[in-house]
Amino acid sequence: MSDAAHRFSDAERAGVYRAIAERRDMRHFRPDPVDPKVFARLLEAAHLAPSVGLMQPWRFLRITDRALRREIHALVEEERGRTAEALGSRQDEFLRLKVEGILECGELLVAALMDGREQHVFGRRTLPEMDLASVACAIQNLWLAARAENLGLGWVSMFDPTALARLLGMPPGAKPVAILCLGHVEAFYPAPMLELKGWTRGRPLQELIFHNTWGNTGASA
């Protein structure tokens, strides 16, 4: 098969890069439902993610019970208070930030590491955290596909994993790693929300690329 058969068109390639550039960690949602066909496509995109040793360590729990949503929200609020205390002088500034959209989003998912993943030695003997990296790849697939479908997604990590696992009836060894708010938005942020709010700024690419040895930011022959 020729190389041309595998090549993306200019428009297709531009769409991929646009989704990457315009993906945002969203915190503001409309309550409109997500079309079931679109939702199914997003889950399929997540499931197509690469995983070390083809272990597919992700599990997604779809939260449809409104009372359960409120309980999850309460867990996040508890951790939000603890985080605010730990921030010291920036406590008030942090409390003014909106950190999640659990009660507003059209769909709520909890991404978890599966139970029994220790049996997957391939790729994990020296880097056991590669199972978590694989789950992150699935979330990123979901995130980019959501942006392509004009839906927003927010990754919430402010919760006690043990408490959330207990609330969701997870077996020993399974661990929630992300609460994912998915749904329609009024508009996508023009830049990361934490930049817009003056909390922090992203670092330029050139500061994060080293050549040959750690800390060497200048290319050499």
Rank of each mutant, 00 (worst) to 15 (best):
residue 93 E to V: 12
residue 194 L to F: 10
residue 145 A to D: 08
residue 29 F to K: 05
residue 122 F to Y: 06
residue 28 H to D: 12
residue 168 L to G: 01
residue 170 M to I: 03
residue 84 A to Y: 11
residue 140 Q to G: 00
residue 203 R to F: 08
residue 124 R to I: 04
residue 17 Y to N: 08
residue 21 A to L: 13
residue 16 V to F: 15
residue 170 M to A: 01
residue 180 L to V: 08
residue 157 S to M: 06
residue 61 L to A: 11
residue 195 E to K: 05
residue 45 A to V: 04
residue 12 E to N: 10
residue 149 E to F: 07
residue 82 R to A: 12
residue 8 F to K: 06
residue 52 V to E: 13
residue 46 A to G: 14
residue 166 R to A: 15
residue 204 P to F: 01
residue 131 D to L: 02
residue 44 E to C: 06
residue 80 R to S: 03
residue 106 G to R: 08
residue 106 G to T: 11
residue 128 P to L: 08
residue 123 G to A: 00
residue 112 A to R: 07
residue 215 G to M: 05
residue 68 L to H: 03
residue 19 A to T: 05
residue 104 E to N: 03
residue 152 G to W: 07
residue 43 L to P: 03
residue 141 N to F: 05
residue 170 M to H: 01
residue 74 A to D: 13
residue 161 P to M: 12
residue 116 G to K: 06
residue 10 D to W: 00
residue 116 G to Q: 03
residue 44 E to Q: 14
residue 158 M to L: 14
residue 28 H to N: 09
residue 181 C to Y: 07
residue 183 G to L: 11
residue 180 L to F: 10
residue 181 C to Q: 08
residue 120 H to L: 05
residue 61 L to H: 15
residue 210 F to T: 11
residue 47 H to Q: 14
residue 3 D to P: 07
residue 7 R to C: 14
residue 60 F to H: 08
residue 93 E to M: 12
residue 176 P to Y: 04
residue 147 R to L: 12
residue 75 L to Y: 09
